Structure formats: structure tokens, C-alpha cells
Simulated scan of single mutants.
Amino acid sequence: MTDLSDRRAMVTGAGSGIGRACALALAQAGAELIVQDINGDNAMVVASEIEANGGKAEALVCDVADEARLASAIRRIGPVTILVNNAGVAGQNAPLEAIDREAYDRMMNTHVWGAFAATRMVLPGMKEAGWGRIINIASNRGQVGFERSSHYSAAKAALIALAKSWAREFAPYGILVNAIAPGVVRTAMTLSYGEAAVAEEAQLNLLKRWATPEEMAAWVMVLVSSTGDFMTGQLICPNGGDPIVGI
């Protein structure tokens, strides 16, 4: 089993879904957790769950795009060497004409600037340690687009491009950066579209099912373990075959 007992990790959007599963998996491996979420109740529940299982965690309740709050927390808690950029919001199932500037800004601020802000805050500690792992949680829609939520697809595509760019920029410091592009995962966010929508999307992949958050967290654990020591700038696609993509 991966031993992360000497590591501190931050997972953004860790109050539910994939973020929660990642936080619990990292804590089980021994990492100290910063459980970031804009929903304070959810963040505190996950932090309490980690501590009840013998781990160490602190809830960080803020907007992920709030650099000042992130910086203050890291100064107080200590440097972070594992970052999972997971915070996100659901896109409108709407055509371009129905997506206004407010919806667009919220999508980009949370997904893209949120990842920027969190990465900027942890980077000095990773550079000093000469070791770091950053994982951006993207989406299959960032690869192939989506006809009813173009701003969501664009935000997720940006996370993929950021992972590739940061991998090049940070490699000299021992910092590896990758992205994960899940297919349909059964979470509170996807269920906000309704059970029928999740079931319909599951039929688009070859396995005809949705994934669990824990299946995505397992790939995060591969990337932060020694197994992932020669992996950077890559996109991992646990999507059930939706889509199958080549080089």
C-alpha cells in the first residue's frame, strides 16, 4: 500500500463526490488532508470522517478561487506537496444563446482560475521540497465537447492543457502534473441533472454503466504513488470507452 505519511495533501471540492473519495483515499494512505470546499458543512463532515478513522484533516471553507484564503490556510497549516484540483460546478444543459456572462464567469472562475489559484499557492512548498504531485480532474467532455454545455467543456479542456503546460514548467523541480478525464460518474453533481440523465449518459460508453467516485480516486492514488513516478503531462481516461481516443 502507498505510504503518504510524510505528505500533506489538499483536495479542492472535497466535500462530496470525486473530491471526497480522493480525500478519504489519500488519508487512508497516511497523508494529512486539507479538505477544501465552498460548502462548509460538507467539508467539515469529510474532515471529521478522516479524523474518526485515525487520520489528520482540517476543513478549509472558502471559494477555491479565493487566493487570499488559500494562502492564509497554507501559511497556517504548512506546505502542501499533493494537490488534487477537483473543485467544479455543473454546467447548464443549455445552448450557447442561453449561457450568459454570469454563468460563463462562474464556470471559468471555479474550474480554471480555481486550479490556477490553488496551484499558485502550493507551488513554493513543492519547489522547496523538490517533490510534488498535481492532478487536475477534467472530463471526457473536455476531450470531445458537448452540445449542451460548451462552457463546461471549455473549462475542462483548459484543465487538460494546464496539466500539460505545468508538467513542462515544473518538471525541473521534481513536480509531476497529470490530468484525469472521467466519463460519467455517479455524484451529487451529475445527479443534479436527474437519474434519467445519468442513466442515459451511462449508455453511451462501452460498459453501459456509470463509475463510482472511488474508481476515480484509485487513479489519483496511482499518480501520487511510486508507480506514477515516470508519469507527467499525461491524460488518463477512465471513461468506460466514451470516448476511445488515440494520439
Rank of each mutant, 00 (worst) to 15 (best):
A21C: 12
A21H: 12
L24M: 15
L24F: 03
L26P: 09
A31K: 08
E32D: 10
E32H: 08
L33G: 05
V35M: 10
D37M: 13
I38Y: 02
I38F: 07
G40N: 11
D41S: 13
N42V: 05
A43V: 12
M44N: 15
S48T: 11
E49F: 00
I50D: 08
E51Y: 00
G54F: 10
G54S: 12
G55Y: 09
G55S: 11
K56V: 14
A57D: 08
A57T: 08
A57C: 13
E58W: 00
C62L: 10
D63Y: 03
A65T: 01
A68C: 07
A68M: 08
R69L: 13
R69E: 13
L70K: 02
S72Y: 00
A73D: 04
A73Y: 02
I74E: 02
R75V: 09
R76I: 03
I77H: 07
G78E: 10
P79W: 04
P79V: 07
P79N: 09
V80G: 07
V80R: 06
T81E: 14
T81C: 14
T81R: 07
I82M: 09
L83E: 09
L83C: 10
N85S: 11
N86R: 04
A87F: 04
A87K: 04
A87G: 09
G88S: 10
V89T: 15
Q92D: 11
A94S: 15
A94Y: 01
P95D: 13
L96N: 04
A98I: 04
A98H: 08
A98L: 13
A98F: 00
D100V: 04
D100R: 12
D100K: 12
R101D: 15
R101P: 00
E102W: 00
Y104P: 02
Y104C: 10
D105R: 11
D105M: 11
R106S: 08
R106T: 09
R106I: 06
M108V: 14
H111F: 12
V112D: 03
V112H: 03
W113V: 03
W113Q: 06
W113A: 04
G114V: 05
F116I: 14
F116Y: 13
A117G: 00
A118N: 04
A118I: 06
A118L: 07
T119L: 07
T119F: 00
R120V: 09
R120P: 06
L123P: 01
L123S: 04
G125S: 08
G125N: 07
G125I: 11
